[in-house]
Design a protein around this nucleic acid. Structure first.
Lengths: 217, 217
DNA sequence: CTTTTATGAATGAAGG
DNA sequence: CCTTCATTCATAAAAG
């Protein structure tokens, strides 16, 4: 339970050192102080790379499910029915939950669909989506409908809030105290999950995935 | 939305120290300007995507645990290799997340407003409140909104828990708010909404694997 | 330092 | 669509 963000609050960080974003480009915006070290384009690339990795893992999951259910030809998808409702993967919470919670895989699929722009969740479309998600856990059309409803609303609100806060930049313009420990060294771990050894050690190594992860640093 | 990441050491914060850090991860370049290394939005996107990947890996761990359980030690060995400091159970908490902490002054003001009855702070009202609180420390409208949201919910729950012991006595119900606990008896679940969490597709429910994964943080 | 508690934030679902 | 509520999660703060 080490909390890397529990770093001593008043530690004067050396500003320049923390550019842990290797390869990130610094775009100096003439109008403001803020510059993105990572461009949207790079973000997109990253997103796709992660997606590739996740996708590969998902396929492996499916594969293994098949392998482990040899004695039960019912197939992989029935496995989740054996889940003890009183136990979760988190190992905590023993009370039954009454509201649907998307599984990571379901979430990913939903996000992907959402990103595809088709903001129109037609009745028919929802049926299709529900059918697909059903392969990864129990779900109903209502769940899917609500999810898109909420997703849209919150995406909108978020965008709004982001723009609203631009005025705040002025405050930072006059950096009152450079020694202000606003940035703790380990405040943010660059997402180099690439170093995760999980896949490699399990011989899940996949050239495509590896290269994708490696290029993320 | 999430532009309040950095809150100077709460309590004793002096206005001068409260540099209105918009959030995200800031650095100070040579010129003394703060620059954003990654926007909050980008961080959030990454956080979620990595979470998906992490969860799938967790599933794989459990799968392998079950696959190799017959060979005992093999499973134990693998478990230790999965520790990724950036990922924990449930696929959440990829990176440290800062959260707003009201200063004593802000809290006092909020409490006062709350006690004045007006249970539903309109959007306009929130703006006003935020503006006022801003003079006592960094804060956003969302913070205020959430605060009232939580305050209401918890105030309600508290009185609800009061009748825990006096299961029969109605005398105790000292309803201070008109809309008392309206526990709606929504017993029916549409088709079949089962409690499910990350990796429920696999549900091998291997305590060892789970705990092992959770030891990552 | 570890464990517990308090509470800010995220989100599925309901209402309008 | 938008707002509101209930519940849950994660973490800062407090307790041990």
């Amino acid at each position: 339970m080490m909390e890397w963000n529990k770093q001593p609050p008043q530690q004067a960080a050396q500003p320049e050192e923390m550019n842990g974003n290797g390869g990130g480009n610094l775009n100096v915006n003439s109008g403001g102080m803020f510059v993105k070290v990572m461009t949207d384009e790079q973000m997109e690339v990253l997103r796709k790379q992660i997606a590739v990795y996740a996708s590969i893992c998902e396929q492996l999951v499916e594969l293994h499910k098949s392998l482990t259910s040899q004695h039960d030809l019912a197939g992989a998808r029935l496995v989740n029915l054996y889940c003890d409702p009183l136990v979760t993967s988190g190992g905590h919470k023993i009370t039954g939950r009454q509201r649907w919670t998307p599984t990571p895989v379901q979430l990913q699929i939903l996000e992907r669909i959402f990103d595809q722009g088709n903001g129109a969740p037609s009745k028919q479309k929802i049926k299709e989506i529900t059918a697909e998600l059903c392969q990864h856990g129990q779900i109903s059309e209502t769940n899917v409908y609500n999810w898109f409803q909420n997703r849209r609303a919150r995406s909108k609100r978020k965008q709004q809030a982001t723009h609203t806060n631009n005025a705040e930049s002025e405050v930072e313009t006059e950096v009152e105290s450079p020694n202000e420990k606003k940035t703790k060294p380990e405040d943010f771990q660059p997402p180099h999950i690439a170093s995760s050894r999980a896949a490699d050690d399990l011989c899940f190594q996949n050239p495509e995935a590896s290269s994708a992860m490696h290029s993320m640093d």
